[in-house]
Structures are given as structure tokens and as C-alpha cells.
Amino acid sequence: MDLLNAFVALANFVLIPGIAYGSQLALGALGVTLVYGILRFSNFAHGDTMAFGTMVVILLTWGLQVLGVSFGPLPTALLALPLGIAITALVMLGTDRVVYRYYRMKKADPIIVVMASLGVMFIMNGIVRLIIGPDDQNFADGARFVINAADWRAMTGLSEALTLRTSTVITIVTAGLSVWALFWFLNKTRTGKSMRAFSDNEDLALLSGINPERVVRVTWIIVAALTVIAGTLYGLDKSFKPFTYFQLLLPFFAAAIVGGLGNPLGAIAGGFVIAFSEVGVTYAWKKVLGHALPDALEPEGLVQLLSTDYKFAVSFAILLIVLLFKPTGLFQGKSV
């Protein structure tokens, strides 16, 4: 029995990856939930818009690398992020103008708008594949580790290593800052308050003189920022592949619904619920249990509940459970 090593292994393989993945999911789910709260439809194009935004950031990063610009130990992609957000925001505003605005004016059934978003999703997907191709792209540079395995062992003398990758630290810090900025905006600024008012009660908000088109525009810009940040962090942490980004749609929706669609705080909680369930269910617990249990009880198998190929089944199962027992989500979203 060696609880310290067990904890280090747990932190290295479950806690830290779970927090990083959870932050990425939370940012993505925040985008889904904001669109749902303000524009009142489930945006199926979210995953592919994320792929688009990340692609822009990757292209800009490559451009900066060619120019010889670097960000020291941090990845160059962070420098490219603001411009990437701006370009994606313009594209999203354009999409809204060309596609969604018509249905909003017509007060179309939400399901028609969802279908339109499916069309947007495929166009985005097509554009991304046309420009950057369907393959994996790796664009992380700078220092790879904050703490690597050898340093850790030298530092602590433990047999289990705790590695801390730069991308993980950046993910957690950036996600924290973004969420803080979002909540500050929603709660303290006039525009943010008008957004929340619009989300709570559209008619009342219109009566009190809030300009709905302005609210919608601001929403798209915020969603663009969240989406591009989420996509870039995910790409830095793992890798960029258009199809993976499309598949992230399911965990995003699951996270947003678990927390309560339309509720930003819920989206963050939902993101972490999904991330930890996914990592926990697909992680092979042999190592941790081997340290934590007395030798006699040491497990023989891998103690992996589900193969990693089924990680989407985890989000799906959680989604079904929430829909069955608490369709409004943990934090009372506006849905149903």
C-alpha cells in the first residue's frame, strides 16, 4: 500500500487530464448554451465552427512561425488567437446575417433553425476540409513540459511521476480567465445585463427598449471568442482534426444539457461532469488501485470499465439519464 504514489498516479492520469478536458468542454458548452439562451436553437454547427476558428488560428500560427515570431516558452498559437477570434466572429456574424436572421424575423419553428444550422455545419466542414484537409495537424510549439517525469522523480523521489504539460497549464489558466471575463461581462456591464434580460424574457426585454439585433450580434461575437479559444486549447492539448471537432458536438450538448440549457454556470459544471465521467470510465485503474490497495487485493486485469473507443457512449449515457430524470438539468435551465 502506497497512498502517496496512488494519489500521484491518480492526479497524473485522471485529475489533471480531467480538469484540462473539462475546461475545454466547459468553454464549448458555454457557446452552445449562450446560443440556445439568446437565439433559442441548438446549434449543430458549433463543432465545425470550432474547427473553422481553430483552422484560422493554425494558419496564422504557421504564418507567424514563418516570420520567425515566437512567444518564448508559450505556444505561438496564443499570439494568433485574437486575430483568429476576430476573423471567426466576422464569419459568424456573416452566417447570422445570411442564414439565421431570416428565420428569426419570420419567427420560424426552432427545429427549422436547427436544420439550417445543420446546413451551416456541412458548409463549414466543407470549407475546413477544402482549406486545411481532413488530416491531423499539430501546431503546438514552445516548451512541452512545465514539469517532466525525470525532474519530478528527482525532486520527490516517488516512483510515480507527475508530469505537467505546458498545454495543460495554458488550458486551465486561459479557460479560467475566459470564464471570469464572461461572467464579469454578463453580470457587470450594461450589454451583458441586457443579454441576460433578453434570455430570461424576450418580450419584456423588447418592451424595455433593448435592441434585439444588438444583443444577437454581441452574442455571436462572444460565442466566437469562446469557441475559438476552446478549439485552440483542445488542438494544443491533443491535436486538430476536423472530424474530431465534429464529434465533440455530442459532449458539448451533453454538458450543456446536464447543466441546464441556457444556463452558463450549468454549462461549466456540466463540462466537468462529462469530462471526469469520460476519463474515469475509460481509464485503466490498475496502476492506481495497485498502489492504493494492499498487495493481496491487487487487481489482475486493467480495471478499465469501457474501452476508450466508447468515450462518446459515456456522454450519451449521461445525456439519457439527465433527459430521463431531470430534463431541466442540474441548474434549472430554461428548456423543456
Binding site: S42, L250, F253, P327
Partner: peptide, 10 residues
């Protein structure tokens, strides 16, 4: 209505 879409996607 969108929940069916999300569940079937999954």
C-alpha cells in the same frame, strides 16, 4: 424537439 435530434446524433 431538439433533444431528439441530439439523442439520435449520439
Amino acid at each position: 424537439s431538439d433533444y431528439l435530434a441530439i439523442a439520435t446524433l449520439g
